[in-house]
Structure formats: structure tokens, C-alpha cells
């Protein structure tokens, strides 16, 4: 089984803070990390390989610095990795992204299973997985929390729904997006780190993946961001001050009245 996992480099959500004075994002000292959901996709790929055999390839689309997360993926047990990077990709919305990723995956050879995280924490759109499946003409299941079995090219998985879950059978080749509940990702291993140190991660350009320039980047993106602004504040508020007793007293009043109806 050849498994391809798509991963994205995102700013570490733990570090991103809103500057209370300027109301802008403060990214000072913010580390770039593997999108947390993608870690679970990667882990699931490695586990499937350990159970059913095969290989796991990770790919990422992004600036040259994104090689760092691919290298980390190698240290966590994946077999192969490559980057898709080109200035022509800048400004891609999810439609242009899925086109680019699909071209890269097609170019890399036949695939049995594509795994993605449910969404990326920097965009939270959850659109790339399903869009990529459409581009690859693969069936897909989103928000998978468990893979129960793979038999005769049919997979049985559990999909999280708003009101419970569905057990779904899906024919391979297929694409799954996964949620955090699916597994606990492993740390790198010492052998993996040694491999990553010498592993030369190839980078492919738009031309390398036979991409149609019109479908890339800003030009290939139907959505345009026209305005970026800080969220509004509520304005009026009253601060409760005083001794601990006074605060507790007032607060107990407000909570009781609001909760039980004054």
C-alpha cells in the first residue's frame, strides 16, 4: 500500500498572541510547526504501514523553510518526503492549493491512500482534503476518528458527525481527513533522526509537476481577501472591584440572577 500524507507548516498556535495595544498579531518568537491535525494523519499513515505493509510519503506545499517539517516527518517514521515550492504558488486559496497538491501527487506515482489532517490551524477551512479528493477523483471520508479494518481494497472507518458517528465503507484508492481522536502521535525516534539528518528532501517547482500556470497561486484562486481587520470589542463592561468578600458577593448575585432568572 502506498500512502501519501499531506502536511502543512503553520505557526505554533500556542505562541500566537494578539497585541492588546495595537490589536495586531504578535508573531515574535513564534515557531513554525507541523499542523497539529496533520501529525495525526502522519501517525495514522505510519501505523497503517506497520500493520499492513507499504510505504508512507509525506508532501508539503510551502516556502523552502517547510523542508523542516518534512525532515521532522522522516524522523517520525515516514519513508519518503518531498516539497512542492514555487513563488508561483503564493496567494493560493484552497482551490489553487488542491490543484497544486493534486498535480504533485499524480506526478509522484500511483497512490492507494491519501491522508490529510481535518484542517490546518492557521486557516481552519477544512476544504483542502475534500477538494483534493475531487481533484484526484477519489472517494473520501472527512473527520475520521478510527480506521477499523482494511480488506480487499475496502476500508471501514468511523466518521465524526455533529450528533454521533457514522461507520463508513470506502473503496481504495481513497482520501481520508482525520481528527485528533484517531491516535496519539509518536515522538521522533533516534533512528529516524539519524535518517533525517542525511535525507535530502527534493523540492519540485510548478514546472516539475507539469502545472498549468493559470491555475496556480493568486491567478488560480477565485477568492480574494479584500479586507483584514481586528475583531470588534463589545465596549461597555463593568469591572467588579473590592475585597474578596465584596467581589464574591456581587458575583454570586449576578450569576444567580442570570442563571435562574431575576
Amino acid at each position: 500500500m502506498r500512502i501519501v500524507v499531506c502536511i502543512k507548516q503553520v505557526p505554533d498556535a500556542k505562541d500566537v498572541r494578539l497585541d492588546p495595544v495595537t490589536n495586531t498579531l504578535s508573531r515574535e518568537g513564534v515557531k513554525s510547526v507541523i499542523n497539529p491535525y496533520d501529525r495525526h494523519a502522519m501517525e495514522e499513515g505510519v501505523r497503517l504501514k506497520e500493520q499492513y505493509g507499504g510505504t508512507v510519503t509525506v508532501i508539503s506545499m510551502g516556502p523552502p523553510q517547510a523542508k523542516a517539517i518534512l525532515s521532522e516527518a522522516i524522523s517520525c517514521g515516514v519513508d519518503d518526503a518531498f516539497l512542492v515550492s514555487d513563488r508561483a504558488f503564493a496567494g493560493s486559496d484552497t482551490l489553487a492549493t488542491t490543484y497544486t497538491l493534486a498535480q504533485a501527487i499524480k506526478k509522484s506515482g500511483a497512490v492507494d491512500l491519501v491522508l490529510c489532517g481535518k484542517q490546518a490551524t492557521d486557516g481552519d477551512t477544512a476544504q483542502v482534503g475534500p477538494g483534493l479528493a475531487a481533484r484526484l477523483d477519489m472517494p473520501y471520508v472527512t473527520c475520521v476518528k478510527k480506521i477499523n479494518a482494511i480488506k480487499d481494497q475496502v476500508m471501514r472507518v468511523e466518521r465524526m458527525m455533529d450528533d454521533g458517528y457514522d461507520e463508513v465503507e470506502i473503496e481504495l484508492p481513497a482520501l481520508l481527513t482525520v481528527v485528533k481522536e484517531i491516535n496519539v502521535p509518536r515522538f521522533p525516534s533516534l533512528r529516524g533522526l539519524r535518517k533525517a539528518k542525511t535525507f535530502d528532501i527534493p523540492s519540485y517547482s510548478a514546472a516539475d509537476i507539469d502545472a498549468d500556470p493559470a491555475q496556480l497561486g493568486l491567478g488560480g484562486s477565485p477568492t480574494w481577501v479584500v479586507k483584514v481587520f481586528p475583531p470588534e470589542c463589545k465596549g461597555e463592561r463593568s469591572m467588579i472591584e473590592g475585597s474578596l468578600e465584596e467581589i464574591a458577593d456581587k458575583l454570586a448575585g449576578i450569576l444567580s440572577d442570570s442563571a435562574y432568572g431575576a
Binding site: T94, L95, V128, P130, G131, A134, T223
Partner: peptide, 23 residues
């Protein structure tokens, strides 16, 4: 922006080659 729509709407937008804004 429910489990169902977030799952299949991106596919529709991709097939129609149009833009989609989430959430």
C-alpha cells in the same frame, strides 16, 4: 458549517471551479 456540509461542499466548489469561504 456542519459536519455534513463541511465535508461535501468543498468538493462541489472544486468541481464547479469556484471559490468557497469556510465558516
Amino acid at each position: 458549517a456542519t459536519a455534513i456540509a463541511r465535508s461535501f461542499i468543498p468538493r462541489v466548489a472544486t468541481s464547479l471551479i469556484t471559490g468557497l469561504t469556510a465558516d
